[in-house]
Amino acid sequence: MYVPTPTQRASQPTTGPWWLLIGPGFAALIGLFLLTVIYRFDGESPLQIDLGISSQSLLLNGVVAYVVAAALAFPAGLLLGGRFPTSVTVPALVFMLLGVVLVAFMPSSGLLLVGRVLNGLGAGAVLGVTVALIRRLQAGRGVAAGVMAGLGVLALVIAPVLGGLLSDATGFRVVFIVAALFVFVALVVAGILGIVALAKPKPLPYAGPSVSETPQRH
């Protein structure tokens, strides 16, 4: 009698643990928050007033530069983030941190463009990493995408409100100092989770059927 050979297990797509999404996902939400926090719904931006710049200058240096930089960095995060999430997320967060700190402590409007470009590069990269990790999830992909999309829209909408309230009380620079603290927290979290992922034992590769599983005829 012929005993058929067990079919070889189908190769699974390479994917990391789901919790690697926490670091870049949190950073992506911060990046979306920082995109619109320089505006407010009920009047002129405190940043615009304090720096003495026009609405056109705020739009170009504060928003357009941010979006363009993010669009340039997003493909890199999307292509590399699935396989090397920590290696992409950590440098991106460093760029974000430098950009936020630069805006917080800039002496004049001349450095606004530089700070927003650095911030946009980091935000675009971590957003790409977040999308890449969600696409590689084997379960709960739709839920994760929906939650991140909802939180992202919320961050965009709520940023001018919170930023305006905090700016009225303390000045716009404090808004970016607080944002820098959150970026630093995201950096620490991403680094720790990356170290944990590297230390986690890797599954052994499939070595094929054993001798007892080879076809036999009786």
Rank of each mutant, 00 (worst) to 15 (best):
P4Y: 09
P4K: 08
Q8R: 01
S11K: 15
P13Y: 08
P13D: 13
G16K: 08
W18Y: 11
L20E: 09
L21I: 15
I22H: 08
I22P: 13
G23P: 14
P24A: 03
G25M: 14
A27D: 03
A28S: 12
L29V: 05
I30D: 01
G31E: 05
F33N: 02
L35G: 03
L35N: 09
V37T: 00
Y39F: 02
F41H: 09
G43N: 00
S45V: 03
I49D: 14
L51K: 15
G52S: 10
G52A: 07
G52I: 12
I53W: 07
I53S: 12
I53Y: 09
Q56N: 08
S57W: 13
L60Y: 13
G62D: 01
V63M: 15
V63I: 14
Y66C: 05
V67E: 08
A69Q: 05
A70M: 11
A70D: 08
L72E: 01
A73V: 07
A73I: 02
F74S: 05
A76D: 01
L79V: 04
L80D: 02
R83H: 15
T86E: 04
A92K: 06
L93V: 13
V94G: 07
L97Q: 05
G99F: 00
V100W: 00
V101T: 04
L102V: 15
V103E: 00
A104N: 03
M106H: 15
P107A: 09
P107R: 06
S108K: 12
S108R: 11
S108D: 14
S109W: 05
G110F: 09
N119C: 12
L121R: 01
G122D: 05
G122H: 06
G122S: 11
G122K: 05
A123E: 01
A123Q: 00
G124L: 06
V129G: 05
V129C: 00
A132F: 01
A132I: 02
L133E: 03
L133D: 01
I134D: 01
A139T: 15
G140I: 13
V143N: 14
A149V: 05
G150Y: 11
G150T: 04
G152E: 03
V153R: 00
V153I: 14
L154F: 06
A155S: 04
L156W: 02
V157F: 01
P160E: 04
V161I: 10
V161N: 00
D168A: 11
T170W: 06
G171W: 02
F172C: 02
F176M: 02
A179E: 06
L181V: 10
F182L: 10
V183Y: 02
V183M: 09
V188Y: 08
V188T: 14
I192F: 14
L193E: 13
L193N: 13
G194P: 09
G194F: 12
V196A: 11
L198Y: 13
L198A: 12
A199S: 09
P201C: 03
L204D: 13
L204P: 00
L204R: 10
P205Q: 08
Y206F: 07
A207I: 13
G208D: 10
G208T: 05
V211T: 13
V211H: 08
S212D: 14
E213C: 08
E213I: 12
Q216E: 13
Q216K: 11
